[in-house]
Every structure is written in C-alpha cells, then in structure tokens.
C-alpha cells in the first residue's frame, strides 16, 4: 500500500522506498516535513530502497552530491549507466529485471552483504534489516521476485523479534 503521511507510517511493518526521481523525492520529503518522521521509522523498521530509493538510503551520493538517510553504508553514483537510452534489462539470480536510468553502487562497507552484482558492481545489497536494489524487480508480470521474497523474510524476522 502507498503511505504518504506520518499518520499512516505507524500502520506498516516495513517500508519500500520505490523508484522514481530521487531529486523529486528528496525535495518533496523535505517540503512535506517527512524527513524526521521517516528517519525515525527507518531506525526501527526494515526498509528496502529500489533504484531512486537505494540512492536515498545510501551514506554518500555522487553526481550530483545530495542528502540521504545514510541507512546503508555505501556510495551510490546517480544515473551511473547514463540516460534512458542506456536503460537495459538483465538477469539477476535467474530473474529478469530492469535497470532504468539506474544508479551504480560504487563502494560498500565491509559489513555489507552483496547479494548480486552486474557488470562488476553490486546491484543488490543487504545490511542488517535493510536492503537495496539498483534495479526494478517489480516491473514484471512474474510475481513475486526473489528480491520481494527476501524482503518479506527480513520483515517477518523483525516482527518475530519484536514480539514479547
């Protein structure tokens, strides 16, 4: 479900920061005063950043430099493959996915788990209860993707831990 306001954030057990334009998302998060509310939620609940969402979760963002939630210790280069003409599909973990004006993960901390790489760079990473994919596993008719299954497991594990 789509949640856009803090009063709805409490209702979810995990977040997906979807694809889109990270510039636009960043500006709207700030203008609608969502930064602090989201930071608080992300500190407690699992979050998965897809494409633009992965940029927002990174510790460092380049080309251009921009603010991020610094949830996953990695450096991400925006539009690392180029413009729309450089968008492409690829098989990740035996599953066909799309890279659309996608970012490239340039550097990761030692404690990051690299779950898949593509053209020599990590494209699917996990860190604690959070994960990021620079590609779109959701633009498909073939649900659910291995990435969705992994994230559901991460969210379930956190919910079990939280149970008294």
């Amino acid at each position: 479900m789509a949640v856009k306001t803090p009063k709805h954030f409490a209702e979810v057990d995990g977040f997906i920061l979807p694809g889109g334009e990270s510039t636009t998302m960043l500006k709207l998060i700030e203008r609608f005063d969502l930064w602090d509310a989201l930071s608080k939620e992300f500190a407690q609940k699992p979050v998965w950043g897809i494409c633009a969402g992965s940029i927002l979760l990174a510790e460092t963002v380049t080309s251009p430099e921009q603010k991020a939630f610094e949830i996953i210790p990695m450096t991400v280069e925006r539009n690392g493959y180029g413009r729309q003409l450089d968008s492409h599909t690829a098989e990740i973990d035996g599953y066909e996915v799309s890279f659309i004006r996608a970012p490239v993960i340039k550097d990761v901390a030692n404690d990051i788990e690299i779950k898949a790489s593509h053209q020599g760079d990590p494209v699917w990473v996990a860190h604690g209860q959070n994960m990021a994919t620079t590609f779109h596993p959701e633009l498909t008719f073939n649900f659910p993707s291995p990435m969705h299954k992994t994230f559901v497991n991460m969210v379930s594990a956190e919910m079990l831990k939280a149970r008294p």
């Binding site: 694809g19 334009e21 498909t140 073939n142």
Partner: peptide, 18 residues
C-alpha cells in the same frame, strides 16, 4: 522477455504521481 514490462513504459511508471 514477455514477463517483463517494457523498458520504455518502465520509465513512465517511474513518473507516476508527479
């Protein structure tokens, strides 16, 4: 593949709500 949304439409999907 036939299982995947076309890359061209994929970009349009990213512009939704804007």
């Amino acid at each position: 593949g036939a299982n995947i949304i076309d890359l061209k439409t994929g970009l349009a999907e990213m512009l939704k709500g804007g």
